[in-house]
Design a protein around this nucleic acid. Structure first.
Length: 609
DNA sequence: ATCCTGGCCA
């Protein structure tokens, strides 16, 4: 209000050159207000036109850079470039700085990154040479768009304008190639560029390490971090965030603890983000108590801190604690966002809190004006299915404002499988395969259903179709960290040095647990073989191999932590309960979905997962 | 004279 008055009543003293004073007044205006509403922008635009400042690059640049939301940016750019944007007429006397500002503004948006590239092209067409500040923005926009073709093109421009030696530009280029991974090509180029360069700083290494983590190649990320230390480049907090993220992904608790002490020892700044990454790491590596402790010790927290600890508790099946922290968060005046709701809803789902889940889902829009996304609907479907309310789940899906995605269909199929609605599961699976013929988990679900129906003929047929289409089932594998080393097992694995002892141990385990009531669940075995062989096949599962390995190589009474890449199978779940009792070990299993804490013959998931 | 790089939660 005050500003609009100021604008309309402003008087310029006559003894000063008008334009200079107008320029200063305009700068003050731009400086003092955040020009993110149409009204303010219109007022300033009027002022600019009135005082003939429309060709003043300084004013125009400021005008563009103070626009802090997407509408303001569109507005500012349409003012700066009022011509038909596809066929620009007369090149105005704009400089690189002005273009950089507009390119930056668009590069930072969520859905208009390609406009950044458009303005880069406009800039070049006008004969304005990009400077060293231009390319980091353009490359960032490319990374956001994710098109390798564009990325390569911009790389060419970087070389053409001679900025490939600039470390900022170079680092952003590594980042861009890591983000534009069509297949593996992008990351391969990033590696090549990375390997060929001689001057790398911690940012370059972090970009590459972070790239591997994003692609799920966490072991490679850790390897690269080790190389970084060998070469003698000192990591900073952002490097450590990526490394922690890799530990979280691998479930490498010992390594994660080492990272924690390394941060302490080297006095690396513990930013909120670093603490968040640490919370996430401890939760995903099985020590959720430590995650909660760290969370409690933080003196300032962001929504990410709260969400990390809530999601951490959720995956350990500690739903009530997660819900209570969510409450505490709201009470502390932190407004939950959509991700926080994913956390609290999945907490309800993993702990069977149906009513609470419904309550939070309904409160999203009512109390927080967050429109539930399909992911939130997915959480609800999962919640209903886990509690056995399959009918309600189907009704819920029918009433939701989205077309169900494959994730939701697969949740429903799994539920059908669990409650024995095999015919329904079969028909949905077939439908899914028709729509998404190259997704292997659709075939796996169908083949599981045929196994339960004992229709080996149809099961074999599914297998054949998969082979014909050149697809492979992701092999189940289990990782375990012993003495700071990761060991990975796949079913029937004989590559391990200790494999003979391990198989003997597995046999012994089988005998011991059968004595206290374990019955092998042979219907889980997805092969058409006779019962005795099936039992044998069950004993070769990667989970059991890893547990046997742990029993052989860790002191009695210590807890065992393993990480499985897929969901733990029903038989291994049952067997592990008995093993925890017979061998008096706490066994913590992280599977694709959540954690299972086995202790004294029971599991924290209450056999519901 | 003012504009630059990598990172955390589903």
């Amino acid at each position: 209000m005050i500003k609009s008055k100021l604008l309309s009543t402003i008087q310029l003293p006559s003894n000063t050159p008008k334009s200079r004073l107008a320029e200063q007044t305009c700068l003050t205006l731009l400086h003092s207000s955040h020009c993110n509403t149409f009204t303010k922008l219109t007022q300033i635009q009027t002022f600019i036109l009135k005082h003939g400042l429309q060709n003043n690059p300084l004013i125009l640049t400021k005008f563009a850079s103070t626009s802090s939301n997407i509408n303001a940016i569109h507005y500012a750019s349409s003012f700066l470039f009022p011509f038909d944007q596809t066929t620009p007429t007369q090149p105005p006397s704009y400089d690189a700085f002005l273009f950089n500002t507009v390119i930056r503004a668009y590069a930072q948006t969520h859905d208009s990154k390609s406009k950044a590239l458009f303005f880069y092209r406009t800039m070049v067409r006008y004969g304005v040479s990009p400077n060293k500040f231009t390319f980091p923005f353009v490359l960032k926009a490319c990374a956001g768009v994710g098109s390798l073709r564009l990325g390569k093109l911009v790389h060419g421009c970087v070389v053409k304008f001679g900025f490939e030696e600039d470390l900022h530009v170079f680092n952003t280029m590594i980042h861009m190639y890591c983000c534009c991974c069509e297949g593996e090509e992008g990351v391969e180029i990033a590696e090549k560029v990375f390997d060929e360069s001689t001057k790398l700083d911690s940012v370059t290494w972090s970009a590459m390490i972070g790239g591997y983590v994003r692609l799920g190649r966490s072991a490679r990320a850790i390897g690269l971090f080790r190389e970084m230390q060998v070469v003698g480049v000192f990591p900073d907090e952002i490097t450590m965030i990526s490394v922690l993220s890799a530990c979280a992904d691998l479930g490498a608790l010992e390594l994660g603890k080492w990272v924690e002490s390394y941060i302490e020892r080297e006095n690396i700044h513990k930013s909120v983000e670093l603490c968040n990454a640490m919370i996430d790491m401890f939760a995903k590596c099985g020590n959720v108590d430590k995650a909660v402790k760290l969370f409690r010790q933080m003196d300032s927290r962001t929504i990410v801190s709260w969400t990390s600890v809530i999601a951490g508790l959720a995956m350990h099946g500690r739903g009530l604690e997660a819900v209570s922290i969510f409450h505490e968060m709201v009470k502390n005046g932190v407004t939950p966002d959509d991700v926080a709701f994913i956390g609290v809803l999945s907490a309800c789902s993993h702990s069977g809190l149906v009513d609470k889940g419904r309550h939070y889902f309904n409160s999203m829009e009512r109390n927080f004006s967050i429109v539930p996304k399909i992911e939130h609907y997915g959480c609800m479907v999962d919640l209903f299915c886990r509690c056995g309310f399959v009918k309600e789940a189907f009704e819920f899906v029918q009433n939701m404002p989205f077309e169900p995605n494959q994730i939701i269909w697969r949740t429903l199929i799994t539920a059908c499988h669990a409650i024995g609605e095999l015919k329904l599961g079969e028909s949905i699976s077939k439908e899914l395969i028709k729509n998404e013929p190259m997704h292997e988990s659709n075939y796996v679900l169908l083949s599981n259903i045929y196994a339960k129906l004992r229709r080996w003929d149809k099961k074999t047929k599914v297998r054949e179709v998969m082979d014909m289409r050149g697809m492979k089932k992701v092999p189940g594998s289990t990782m375990i960290e012993v003495n700071n080393e990761m060991h990975e097992f796949v079913a029937g694995d004989k590559s391990h040095d200790q494999y003979k002892e391990i198989y003997e141990m597995v046999d012994e385990m089988g005998k011991e647990i059968k004595r206290v009531g374990y019955v092998p669940t042979t219907s889980q075995v997805l092969l058409d073989i006779d019962e005795e062989d099936k039992e044998d096949a069950l004993y070769r599962h990667s989970e059991k191999l890893a547990i046997a390995f742990a029993l052989l190589n860790t002191p009695p009474g210590t807890s065992i932590r393993i990480v499985k890449n897929l969901r733990i199978c029903e038989d291994c779940h049952s067997a592990t309960k008995f093993i925890s009792k017979v061998y008096n070990r706490e066994i913590v299993v992280r599977d694709r979905n959540r954690f299972h804490h086995f202790k004294n013959g029971l599991c924290s998931c209450r056999d519901f997962w």
